[in-house]
């Protein structure tokens, strides 16, 4: 089963992403900040993909990604930054730090699935593709 790590300080956003990824047949672990994410990376078997917010208290998502990138054992993990930062220069910074893909908030469930496809992360789509971030479908 494909395993995903979701890192965001907003519980609502973690809830939304976990729902989307679970509906794509993935197993999801959540972390509320950078330190907690590093702990989960150590604690759990390897993840296939990590979705990382930029602005979090303490370690930023950019710092977390740089840390992850430095560790050979985590380099095979696909990393997608998920953030409101949409400036071209910010996207370049994220890609240079080690992010493979970048999703700007707000986004729909379809957008997440399509980015995962670009990353080569395996998932299974249920019926119908018109789902959005909200729970009411």
């Amino acid at each position: 089963m494909t395993r995903a790590l979701v890192v965001d300080d907003s519980r609502a956003m973690r809830s939304i992403l976990t729902r989307i990824l679970s509906s794509l047949g993935m197993e999801v672990v959540e972390a509320e900040d950078g330190q907690s994410a590093l702990a989960k990376l150590q604690q759990f078997p390897p993840f296939d993909v990590a979705l990382v917010d930029w602005h979090m208290p303490g370690m930023t998502g950019l710092e977390l990604i740089s840390d992850m990138h430095r560790q050979p054992k985590w380099r095979s993990m696909a990393i997608m930054m998920v953030t409101t930062e949409s400036d071209q220069s910010q996207i370049v910074r994220a890609l240079n730090a080690g992010a493979h893909e970048y999703l700007v908030k707000p986004f729909t469930a379809d957008a997440v699935a399509e980015k995962l496809l670009l990353l080569g992360v395996k998932f299974s789509k249920g019926n119908g593709s018109e789902s959005t971030m909200g729970g009411n479908n």
């Binding site: 707000p106 729909t108 959005t132």
Partner: peptide, 9 residues
Amino acid sequence: ETWEAILAE
């Protein structure tokens, strides 16, 4: 756009 994407309404 934010409402449409997140709140589906």
